[in-house]
Design a protein around this nucleic acid. Structure first.
Lengths: 219, 219
DNA sequence: CGAAAAATTTAGATATAACTAAAAATATAT
DNA sequence: ATATATTTTTAGTTATATCTAAATTTTTCG
């Protein structure tokens, strides 16, 4: 199978690709992966040699079908382990990301199928992200990020795009939790920050925070 | 913390030391770890530099107090994960070793404490080995290996010294399971093989197999 | 004891995955 | 359109953990 480093790159590229549509650039991968562009170039060549990505010098990359499937397997493992940590071991949603980053690289098909069964085949992880099944399929989870919403619209907060403990702890501090109803009150034209309202309070969030909060049933 | 390679060496040295008493030799480590003696020498120097082992050229090694504690932490993790795999995920005892070899290297103190609690603080793993607590302490589990027994003596089979799937599958095939009462019928002076008897059948095992079966209440 | 055998260490190489600094290609902007 | 800035790649280095082959030390035994 693939090395941990390779699996991490696949996951990063998958995530960037699905948020971007188009080809993913070397620098973007480097910043997400906390490495240098030169390291990314090296790895892209390796992934291309293994037919995991389509790569043309200076033109960015995108995953091949094999790459996409491999990425989804890693993501499936990550999200199942996160579910395990929260549901069975009583971790909080902001504590599981780094541990799951390690667990996701454990090699065993049987293990992950048995874990899935033990957890009763969950469809969403603790951050509201859909868990791919063994074939890479997910339930459709039509959400809108706050940054794409208009003034006056509202929805239910069902997921985050950044599940780092830093970001989740910020949400905890601001009293924002999955399930909350959130309404967009105003958008600052100057810096793009959002004034939002929940059932209990109002607050201002930056544009970049708004890009990481996913809402459902937005009207 | 320590690298996976370092942790694996610590575990190997710990196991050899506790079965041997004396200093552990380079070649012995190499054969247990499936590497070459030269690789072992390199690693021993590294471990010595980190104060994990006492090492003198050509004289073998033994763990320092720090090394012993570190080894016990890895062993604790390994055995807790094995218990999880068998008790919660319904793996068989011969299927868990390789997966636990991977899981044991996941870095998180909290994780292992929560796992321990989830499993209700088990004292023995699925192979009958005692699980060290957070301080490295284990219940005393006085057992005798068959190879140390006399003709006519008998006891209850409570543990194995080799928990590789190959060995455990051999035991399955020979219909030997934890809890069985085993009696030594005869010892071949020629090759040291043992004729043993359970409640249901008789069989002959080699000396090396006899060295890996642990019995309790031997009389 | 001293030669042969066995065990161990050293020296030098390899693979992975990172890095820095310099070079090359692409994009931007006057 | 051409100079400048940005992005990306290349070249060369580093660290980890292996390996083989040769050298060295220890052990064994006639």
């Amino acid at each position: 199978m693939y090395s941990q480093a390779e699996e991490n790159y696949l996951k990063t590229i998958y995530n960037l690709e699905s948020r971007q549509g188009s080809e993913v650039s070397t620098n973007l991968i480097a910043s997400k992966a906390n490495t240098k562009a030169s390291s990314v170039t090296d790895m892209l060549k390796k992934l291309a040699a293994k037919n995991l990505v389509q790569y043309k010098k200076y033109q960015g990359v995108h995953l091949t079908e094999l790459g996409r499937k491999s990425a989804l397997k890693v993501i499936r493992k990550h999200r199942l382990w996160e579910s395990f940590l929260v549901q069975k071991l009583n971790f909080k949603w902001d504590e599981v990301h780094d541990i799951a980053e390690q667990l996701e690289h454990v090699k065993s098909e049987v293990l992950i199928e048995k874990l899935d069964a033990f957890l009763k085949y969950p469809k969403l992880d603790p951050h509201g992200d859909p868990i791919p099944d063994a074939h890479g399929r997910t339930i459709l989870n039509k959400t809108v990020v706050i940054s794409a919403m208009k003034i006056g619209s509202a929805g239910v907060f069902v997921g985050v795009r950044d599940s780092s403990s830093e970001f989740l702890q910020y949400l905890n501090k601001k009293n924002l939790a999955l399930g909350d109803r959130i309404k967009v009150i105003d958008i600052e034209p100057f810096d793009g920050s959002f004034h939002i309202e929940t059932r209990t309070h109002r607050l201002v969030i930056t544009k970049s925070v708004a890009e990481n909060l996913c809402l459902k049933n937005v009207k």
